[in-house]
Design a protein around this nucleic acid. Structure first.
Lengths: 244, 244
DNA sequence: TAAATAGTGTCTATAAGACACTATTCT
DNA sequence: AGAATAGTGTCTTATAGACACTATTTA
């Protein structure tokens, strides 16, 4: 091992315990799944937070989540926690990444696998809106800091990832109802990108790209009706949707 | 809970054990960090695999990795394992995602956090090349299947992610030496994208984008010398590089 | 008829892609 | 002189962005 390490990466063998290492020799970490749930309210991107009722971080706001059970996949755990803590199901879940710094949870070593979910603005019926206190939507640019654990970091990363994906994926589908107007769709894009878009250019792009297709239907209201559109491709990946 | 679930996502409270759940009530999983190490050899993208010496999957090829220790971050664990198993350090590591299906490891529940690393083609000195048998480079389109655990899936996902990132990041930096010719750089892009690129268009793009800048130096060989370039921005994120 | 929202077209600038030959060095 | 690799420019096409007014409905 006397090769010049600053000039060459070497592969000469070093003491290798990976084949013989006994996992039970070290305390195992707990593993949780946390879910960042986005929706659009009044043209602003919001996340759902729950107020913690117990130590640690009692009374502070946190991303919903919980422990992964021995017999379920990480995706299943995320779906289950989402359902248990918020009653939401049938939502597209996307894994962000794992967060696992020692000390991020004062109880014990906890590694969390963070997910993001998008739910349509017209289908949000949050009981806590009236009930208040224990579950609330917060605009992503107006969060109650500090959050529990390292949830500030997770939310920052989730938002960065979301914005990155906006341009190259049909990511807005998850935030829109089945049928929607082009104005609603533009609102979603503007909220996600954080900047205003030109109406004519946006519509040219949305229609020209074949992303959406017109339904016959129209909206009603005290003003000119708008045509309703739907997404053209099937695209909701089966694996991401809970059957029931 | 009598609202029409097919029409509305509801947030009415369901039995919620997340606040009172005792993590020690369930067996905790083991957590590992696995690293997919890419390099370019003879214009083809290769990954480093090691042959397992012990049960399970004894004798089959696997991605290097090992258990995360209680006092280290996930990133540190990945760097340590990379160093221990291959002697490589000072490499950019990027977390891919966690893989944690029950049963992916026959020993016990093991959740792995997968990383990707890129190392430059000219600095690869793999002892096992002559020694053989226990650590080898494989072209990504010619892998020894089946691999151990769910490593087929991890490699497929890593490659998908790598190709996705090629277009929008300076990802090739990790695969190139400090100084390189534009032909070498084009080789990297072609290997990663899996298709040939036009030489003139590539050079126009590489130079015009300000990504690289010429050094004064030239190569030598039995043919016309080529100008050597280097990346313009500092850009290697400090957190990704092991200091020593 | 006022308020509110929907809907529509052109021009310009930039980026990406197709395409083939000459230049330099060494043996 | 031949082998090997480096290096170079134009035209076309597609895409994104700037930019402002008319249309329809209900109260």
């Amino acid at each position: 091992m006397d090769r010049d390490r600053s000039e060459y990466y070497t592969f000469e063998k070093m003491p290798d315990d990976s084949q013989t290492y006994d996992p039970s020799a070290f305390a195992r970490p707990s593993v949780t799944a946390d879910i960042v749930i986005y929706t659009l309210r009044e043209k602003r991107l919001h996340v759902l937070l729950i107020r913690r009722k117990a130590w640690p971080f009692e009374g502070t706001w946190a991303i919903p989540g919980g422990f992964v059970r021995p017999d379920e996949t990480l995706d299943q755990a995320a779906k289950r926690e989402l359902r248990e803590e918020t009653g939401v199901s049938g939502v597209v879940l996307e894994q962000l990444r794992a967060f696992g710094d020692p000390g991020r949870d004062p109880r014990t070593r906890v590694i969390t696998v963070a997910y993001t979910a998008l739910i349509p603005s017209d289908r949000v019926v949050l009981r806590a809106d009236t009930d208040a206190a224990d579950a609330r939507w917060f605009a992503v640019d107006d969060l109650p800091r500090p959050l529990a654990f390292d949830h500030d970091e997770i939310l920052a990363e989730a938002l960065r990832s979301l914005r990155e994906r906006v341009e190259r994926e049909n990511i807005t589908r998850g935030l829109l109802p089945v049928r929607f107007t082009l104005t609603q769709m533009q609102d979603v894009y503007e909220a996600l990108l954080g900047r205003p878009l030109d109406k004519r250019n946006f519509r040219k792009w949305a229609l020209g790209s074949g992303l959406v297709r017109g339904t016959g239907q129209e909206t009603r209201g005290p003003h000119r009706p708008a045509l309703l559109y739907e997404f053209a491709s099937p695209s909701l990946r089966a694996a991401d949707v809970v059957p029931a």
